[in-house]
Simulated scan of single mutants.
Amino acid sequence: MSSDLNFALRLADAADAITVARFQARDLVVTSKPDRTPVTDADTAVEDAVRAMIAAECPGDAVAGEERGGAVGPGRTWVLDPIDGTKNFLRGVPAWASLIALVDGGEPVVGVVSAPALGRRWFAARGAGAWVASGGHSVRIGVSAVASLSDAYLSTTHLGTWVEHHSREKYLALVDACWENRAFGDFWSHCLVAEGAIDVAAEAIVNPWDVAAVQIVVEEAGGRFTDLSGKARFDGGSALSTNGLLHDAALAYLA
């Protein structure tokens, strides 16, 4: 295990300690950001704790996070989403995770997605494969071999985002082309693609911290990750994860 991945896993441990303690807490403090998305005291506490660890152990690295800002530079940048799925977190739904990625030269090289309420943690490093840890064991994961959209399982986050940010009609055309669809949402859709449990995950609107970690997990699992224009980037404002075999066909519906 690389030192960077080992450090990212320790950052995830610190994040989990905070999120698990605050999940379903009766005194959870919830406020709204200017874009009306919710933020809890757990979100800010996680990002502050992770930033402090990075400053102490990797003082030369930059940090970009959802709650405290920052930008991805040309060198090493840690990209943080302290709680992806904050709406789930504050409502008591266990599908949320802390996302930690190390981006170097504009490319994710390490990614950790830790979902303690689900009892799962996905992680990857460039050239080292993708893994999921559950129940004290880690196993290597890989995407499915489904080769036709008519046999494919599709997931998104929220249908309403397609109306506002892309095209509801085009997404529904992709739905009709697939065998089955769900809305597992956020990080989970992409991680399920990496595990081979579903075949396509699409999001009309994302931020860099939403998908930097999942990009490398999907790619190291043998899949393909792009924005909806087909560019392999985490900062393109949208996201499409597939097993690779279905990617061009899915893009054709969403273009």
Rank of each mutant, 00 (worst) to 15 (best):
G135R: 11
V110M: 08
V110D: 06
P116G: 10
L99S: 11
W78K: 12
G65H: 03
G127H: 10
T86R: 02
G85T: 05
I100T: 14
D81H: 12
G92T: 11
A133H: 09
D48A: 15
G111R: 12
A52T: 15
E67M: 10
A125P: 02
A49N: 02
F123N: 00
E107P: 01
D48K: 15
V112M: 08
G105Y: 06
K87L: 09
R121L: 04
N88F: 01
A71S: 14
G106H: 14
V46C: 03
S134Q: 10
P38T: 12
P116W: 07
G106I: 15
E67Q: 12
A101G: 13
D104H: 14
A95T: 13
V103M: 08
D81S: 14
A124F: 07
G111L: 08
A49L: 00
I54A: 06
G135L: 13
A95E: 10
C58Y: 07
T77N: 10
S134E: 11
W131N: 04
V79Q: 04
R76P: 04
V50H: 02
D61M: 02
D43F: 00
G111C: 11
A133W: 05
L90V: 13
R51I: 09
A49I: 00
L80A: 07
A62M: 08
R51Y: 00
A64Q: 12
G111V: 13
A52M: 07
A125H: 07
G105P: 14
A95G: 00
D43Y: 02
S98W: 03
I141W: 02
A124D: 07
A124T: 12
S134V: 15
F89H: 06
D84K: 11
L99M: 12
I54N: 02
E57S: 10
R126M: 09
